[in-house]
Amino acid sequence: MTTIITKTITKICIPLVILFSISLLLAGHNNPGGGFIGGVMFVSVIALSYVVFGLRHIKTFFNPDWAKWFGFGLTLASLTAFSAMLFGHNFFRSAVEFVHLPLFGEIELVSAGLFDIGVYFVVIGSLLFIFKNVGDDNE
C-alpha cells in the first residue's frame, strides 16, 4: 500500500480532489454534484491519505476535530431551514436570488445552497470522525 508511487500520487491528488469537491458542492444546484457527493469526495481523499501515510503520522501535523465539522454542518443546515420562518414563511421555504458580480457575471444565490453546505460538512465530519476513531482503535 505505502509504496513511493502511491505516496507521490496521493500528494498530487489531495489539493486537486479537494478543489474538485468544492466545485462539485458549488455547482450542485444546476450541474451534477451537490453537498453529499462533494463531501464524500473530500472524505475519500483524506481517508486515502490516512491509509497511505498512516493515521499516526498524519495526526502529528493535521488533526482537526471532525466532531466540530459535523456539529457546524448540522447547525448550518437547521438554521437555514428555520431562517425562512423569520420572514414569515413556512419551515424550509427556499429563496432564489440572481446577483451580478463584476468578474463572474450572473450568479445564482439559493438558500438551499447553504443547506447543501451544511450537508457537505456533516458528511465530511461524521465520516472522518468514524474513520479516525476506528483507525485509532488499536485493540
Binding site: 450542485g28 444546484h29 444546476n30 450541474n31 451534477p32 454534484g33 451537490g34 453537498g35 453529499f36 471532525w66 466532531a67 459535523f70 456539529g71 454542518g73 448540522l74 443546515a77 437547521s78 431551514a81 424550509f92 427556499s94 432564489v96 445564482e108 439559493v110 438551499a112 445552497g113 443547506f115 447543501d116 451544511g118 450537508v119 456533516v122 458528511v123 465530519g125 461524521s126 465520516l127 470522525f129 468514524i130
Partner: peptide, 29 residues
C-alpha cells in the same frame, strides 16, 4: 430554481428528509 433535479430533490423538495438523514449521520458518528 435548479436544473439538477437530483440535487433539488435532496436539498429542497425532500429537504426535511435530508435534515433527518444528516442528523442520523451525526448520531451514528
Amino acid at each position: 430554481g435548479g436544473h439538477n433535479i437530483v440535487n433539488v430533490i435532496i436539498v429542497d423538495f425532500r429537504g426535511y428528509d435530508t435534515l433527518g438523514e444528516i442528523s442520523v449521520m451525526c448520531l451514528a458518528a
